[in-house]
């Protein structure tokens, strides 16, 4: 009896986060994604410690142009004799920062719009969601290209251009979660004791719709990183000489026949980042919502 009771107690003590972590931990692919992504994140945070910007990334060495990978330059050198490994390492910074910025921007704006639409309902809901629908009808690449063309290339504009296309998704997710929760007892209870609407949304409803939002964050982060490099590749994002994976590939394309190694590594970096985020997102979705697991 006592054994059973303690087992029950132990089970009950586990918080929801611990439950999620337990399920997540069992998923090998998700853990692999988490490890890879953590490594990429650490590399980008400590880029300055790992590779010196002045001597490795900026310094040109014309005796050593387009050298194949070697011990000295594991990823080879580019058309100015700069070390590609160093540029890939430093290139991660802008890609991740802009990706993260665009996610934060769209989460804030889309989440607020969706929460307001779902919570108040009625005409306001209708108005907001129709506008969101229109934004959703413009394909993200075209939207981002248009915005970059109009506002000009800068890191901030890039964040804006990429972020705007995520807004509809966050608004929709947030709205449907809020609609599902707004008539629950705990929201009614909060209303009864006189809590303000904004307090109810932020402290009662928001924590309960974190699951789909969290999954969407990893997915749109991956898409954001992809879009940064795509825009830079076609010359509308971050332009050289600042190292960025997309613009490195854009230059490398000119030398495809003579120096294929220049194309290989920056692309691998993008693919690996996106792959790790996708694995992480899939794992999170399965761990947060066991019902969805197939």
């Amino acid at each position: 009896m006592s054994e059973q009771a303690s087992a029950l107690k132990k089970y009950k003590k586990r918080s929801q986060m611990a439950e999620v972590w337990l399920r997540f931990r069992k998923n090998k692919a998700a853990i692999f994604g988490l490890i890879i992504f953590t490594c990429i994140l650490l590399v980008s945070i400590f880029a300055d410690v790992l590779v010196d910007y002045e001597t490795k990334v900026k310094q040109q060495d014309f005796m050593n142009r387009m050298a194949s990978p070697s011990w000295e330059h594991p990823f080879g050198t580019d058309e100015f004799g700069r070390d590609i490994l160093g540029r890939v390492v430093h290139g991660s910074r802008l890609s991740l920062a802009v990706g993260l910025g665009s996610v934060a921007f769209s989460l804030l704006l889309g989440g607020t719009l969706g929460a307001v639409a779902g919570y108040y309902g009625g005409r306001l809901d209708n108005l907001i969601m129709r506008i969101v629908d229109i934004f959703m009808a413009i394909p993200s690449t075209i939207m981002a290209i248009t915005i970059m063309a109009a506002l000009g290339a800068s890191t901030f504009n890039l964040m804006l251009a990429i972020g705007i296309s995520f807004i509809p998704t966050y608004a929709r997710i947030m709205r449907s979660s809020v609609i599902g929760l707004r008539n629950t007892e705990f929201v009614e209870a909060a209303k009864a004791i006189g809590a303000k609407n904004s307090t109810i949304i932020l402290t009662e409803i928001l924590p309960n719709c974190m699951a789909p939002i969290l999954v969407q964050i990893t997915m749109s982060f991956a898409f954001g990183v992809l879009n940064v490099s795509t825009l830079s590749f076609i010359g509308l994002g971050i332009s050289p000489p600042t190292p960025e994976w997309g613009n490195m590939l854009s230059t490398a394309r000119e030398y495809l026949r003579d120096a294929p190694h220049m194309c290989f590594f920056p692309g691998m970096a993008i693919a690996l980042t996106i792959l790790s985020l996708n694995l992480l997102g899939d794992g999170l979705r399965d761990a947060l919502d066991p019902k969805l697991k197939q």
Binding site: L249, A271, I274, L275
Partner: peptide, 18 residues
């Protein structure tokens, strides 16, 4: 499929050309 969704199209294009 997982690799397919993760690979950027412009890089895939360059690799295919190569």
């Amino acid at each position: 499929c997982l690799i397919g969704v993760s690979i950027p199209s412009f890089w895939l294009a360059l690799m295919l050309i190569l």
